[in-house]
Simulated scan of single mutants.
Amino acid sequence: MVTLGNNTESPDKPYLTDAGEKSRTLRSFPPYGTMNKNSSGDTCPTCQGTGRIPRGHADQLVAVIPCNDIRLRPRRTKLYVFVSMVVCLLLSCLILFFLFPRSVTLTPVSVLSVMVFFTPDTVEMEVTNLINISNENFVPVQIVEFNMQGLVSQSVVGKIKISNMTAIQSRSQNSYTVKINLPITDKGLNTYCKSAAIHIHTLFLELQITMNISYLSHTEQLSLDTFEYIDCGTNSTIPHPVT
């Protein structure tokens, strides 16, 4: 049945009734759930075999799960979430504990020997020192560069630079023997060291040590100033500790 509407803009346009519009809408959708035995359809999986659906439209089906289905209510959900959070927190703490940067300590231990050579104008000395380097980290530490300079009476008398020192393994300590040449050209100190009337020719040697290290993808510089006494008048091969 067709009726005319009272639209003022287009009075001659017909309007369908509710039944006609519903019929036209249903024709645009495939006839799901038909009860006939048409061989062109498949058995409807949601109708227990009583209905038929067109071939090729199986991916358009919508499955309805009841609200009381046990699959919608997994058991021990809170327990699983809590255990997962605890495991993640524990792993994070372990990573921070093992990878957190710790100290690398540079310590002079003793003067092993002092070899003295007299020349007409200078006093040549070769001082051998024992140095300990300890690594408190859980990763190896690479020594990039080691520098040492010796000062007598606030004047630099010798320098040394080492670039091939071995790495320090994790949680370990290595001892290194470092030799530095100290030529003294000061006339007053030369006279003092060469004087036969003085039995012990004590000089206070200041050592300024800097060391560049690399670990955990970053570099760091350590520095240390230490004082030690040496005898510039004679050879000394008896080690004595640095105070």
Rank of each mutant, 00 (worst) to 15 (best):
M1F: 01
V2C: 09
V2P: 11
T3S: 00
T3G: 03
L4S: 09
T8C: 05
E9S: 08
D12Y: 15
K13H: 10
K13F: 04
K22P: 02
P30D: 10
P30V: 11
P30S: 12
P30G: 10
P31Y: 09
N36R: 12
N36L: 13
N38S: 14
T43N: 03
T46R: 10
C47P: 14
G49W: 11
P54V: 05
H57K: 08
H57M: 14
L61C: 12
V64T: 09
I65D: 00
N68I: 09
I70W: 07
R73V: 07
P74S: 01
R75S: 05
K78L: 15
L79W: 13
L79E: 13
Y80S: 09
Y80P: 01
V81M: 09
V81K: 04
V83P: 00
M85H: 11
C93L: 13
L94Q: 05
F100E: 08
T105M: 05
T107P: 00
V109K: 06
V116P: 06
F117K: 07
F118W: 07
P120Y: 05
V123K: 04
V123F: 09
E124N: 10
M125Q: 07
E126F: 06
V127K: 00
L130Q: 15
I131D: 03
I133H: 00
S134Y: 04
S134E: 08
F138E: 08
V141F: 01
V141Y: 01
N147H: 08
L151T: 00
V152M: 14
Q154G: 10
S155Y: 12
V156P: 01
V157Y: 10
K161E: 14
K161D: 08
K161M: 12
S163C: 02
M165H: 07
S172E: 12
S172D: 14
V178F: 07
K179G: 09
I180Q: 06
I180V: 10
T185H: 10
T185S: 15
K187W: 13
K187I: 07
N190P: 03
T191K: 13
K194V: 05
S195M: 05
A197E: 13
A197F: 12
I200W: 12
I200H: 12
L205C: 13
L207R: 02
L207D: 09
Q208L: 12
Y215V: 09
L216F: 02
H218L: 05
E220K: 11
L224A: 11
T234W: 00
S236N: 15
P241N: 09
